[in-house]
Nucleic acid binder design. Structure first.
Lengths: 213, 213, 213, 213
DNA sequence: GATGAATGAGTCTTCATTCAT
DNA sequence: CATGAATGAAGACTCATTCAT
């Protein structure tokens, strides 16, 4: 077997195990058992256990970035409405998670308690997602689709939280129950909830006071 | 020192450490060092490391339940508007997380890879939050404030994800940067985004865009 | 409660537990639980766990010695036959074990793996039993009841082994099944097996089968 | 080193230590120090400390069974006398213990206070020895060599106790003092004591009374 | 490259003993 | 004297990593 293939094999089985059992409860023994290779072989391709995990995350990260770039190149910004744009973004992101529910689980449910360098990678990924969303909200504000009073920081969190949890729920936790649910349906549903609140044209004076009476 | 006090002390320091370093990377050694007690003392009050963690989560769970009950008894359902009700709920939940940012971190960032019985407790907590939200959405539908076409499952996830992420972001991760941000402001902001989408009166024929007829 | 009574109480419960579970598997916690006293109280009466155990054995040792002395004073050496004497001795020893099946179990089944000072006490007890038996065999040889060719060392072991095992079997292991078996019956049975071999008058030339001359 | 060899090595050193210090006082640290291996190596071959001990006992058990079978196939039952048969059995058993004085010590001196599964194995071994002896006594009764009045249960205990104690005394405790004593001599001596009592043809009426004179 | 036996630092857990109240 | 919370040395077991074959 070629070196690259073997490395990919190890990654594949590791991904399965990390997704199901998490970083700590997945042992090298489990990986070599499932991959039917010798203990030492793992260390021929990876520096250590961390390295496997980080490689997995890095792959994910790269895939996600490429997905974003590809998507943008396909959009016709002159024609698309703000609502459709939002829906497109949500759909692309959901699709990304749907395509790899194992990595989805790893990223969305791993948190505190991993080694420092692992946490860094996860936070970079999460931070980047958030940043992109925020930038697009700014864009919306400049194009007058979104009120300037909107707290982009907060809204970015709302969107991120909502979308990531949706991904976790439909693609990992309740995967079987909703396997007929399409990414398109989910994106449509999310957009319908967020669009009215995001794209409302509210005069600033009414927004800033809670209750004028 | 009285038994209950000592137990509370151990729990307090454990909470700090679990929050900062997670379950796996927090060692009994760390706990006894910070609590300035002997190794054996921990085991006088807790069966093992799991037991400490689960006790912590159970306490949290109880606090949260009590908070919900207390809040409901204080609301005057005959006068409050749907929007204000939503805002109240969001605020209570955020307040709950704001009050204990350590447990907030533990619950929101712990996921896969803990022992079985620990995962169970966490999932129960998350599930209960989601269930309550869903029930209130049903209530909204019956009182005609929320469209019957709304996918309550999905919306419950959107709200849960949005609120939990907001809590994590403002009360844990960026705590220092936003320490002047009040819970009220956050609740207001979240409500403003969600209310228009939730309480819109949309005729069913316009919503069903996929209608084959 | 008086000091001596409390000490006796601790000894009593310790004996039960040591007999049932052995030295290592009996914990101070078990003793104080059964005796319904506080942990520290044990150490008011005994230096440590070893001390309890050794006190128990010493009591046993003393009881046994006294039993022997009492018995000898009751025998009329001018009238008793060698066979009856043997039977008497066996009976006394069996009675001694029968009277306290817990200590019987402790002594007969404890072996290697106890702390040094405990082992010493046990070996002293066993050694003393053996020595007494051997001395009586010498006496038998001098009174011409037992052949001078007899290997007293070996025979002492045979008797000791046979009697101790009988005690263990009938008074501890199969206690329930044979609770109607009297000590007298056992002594009679043992005597019947050993007497013919012990008191035979064998000419020396026939015994020394390995004689090279 | 091959796996089986390494396992045998660990067993060998463990046997030495268990024999000398017993189960509880022998630590994994002692074993790895004496075997000059790493701590983890032990756990590559054995599940835990119990597993080592039980493996040792099981090996012993198997050896003993095989010894019995081999011995029986070598005897010519048509020619041998009852006394010689007894002597042969005693000799075989003694030889068995003489061949491995460490396991002899472990089995003969271990008793109460070991973990449940260990005690089970020890009791099986002891029980089997006793059963075999009893069966042969029955055989003796059917062939009219042994009186039917004889209490086989009791006599089996006498023989077992006598032989096991002899083994312990000569092969373990006083090993150095009697290293010139042959197994044959011991078997001869034991037989000489037991044979007259076992093979006496006593009319039942004379047996039941103690001494009419 | 592949193997898997060997390694040993690291961790949890136990339990006899102490001592302030 | 009695109590029982606190102690900490000791010991079993784990598992990522190495390296000779």
């Amino acid at each position: 077997m070629k070196a690259e293939d073997r490395k990919a094999l190890i990654l594949m089985y590791s991904k399965q195990l990390f997704s199901e059992y998490g970083y700590h409860m997945t042992q090298i023994s489990d990986i070599i058992k499932r991959a039917r290779i010798a203990r030492g072989t793992v260390y021929q391709y990876f520096k250590n256990k961390d390295d496997i995990f980080i490689t997995l995350l890095d792959n994910y990260f790269t895939t996600w970035r490429n997905g974003l770039a590809k998507r943008d190149s396909e959009l016709d910004f002159s024609k698309i409405t703000a609502v459709d744009f939002l829906k497109q973004r949500i759909k692309t992101t959901l699709q990304f998670f749907a395509d790899d529910h194992e990595l989805c689980n790893i990223v969305l449910k791993m948190g505190v308690g991993l080694h420092d360098n692992i946490e860094k990678v996860i936070q970079r990924l999460e931070g980047d997602i958030q940043t992109i969303i925020k930038e697009e909200l700014y864009l919306g504000q400049r194009t007058r689709n979104i009120s300037e009073d909107m707290d982009t920081d907060l809204v970015a969190n709302l969107l991120t939280g909502a979308v990531l949890r949706t991904a976790l729920y439909y693609f990992v936790q309740e995967r079987e129950a909703f396997k007929d649910k399409t990414v398109d349906e989910l994106a449509e549903g999310i957009t319908r909830v967020f669009a009215p609140g995001l794209f409302q044209k509210v005069p600033s004076e009414e927004q800033e006071t809670n209750d004028p009476s």
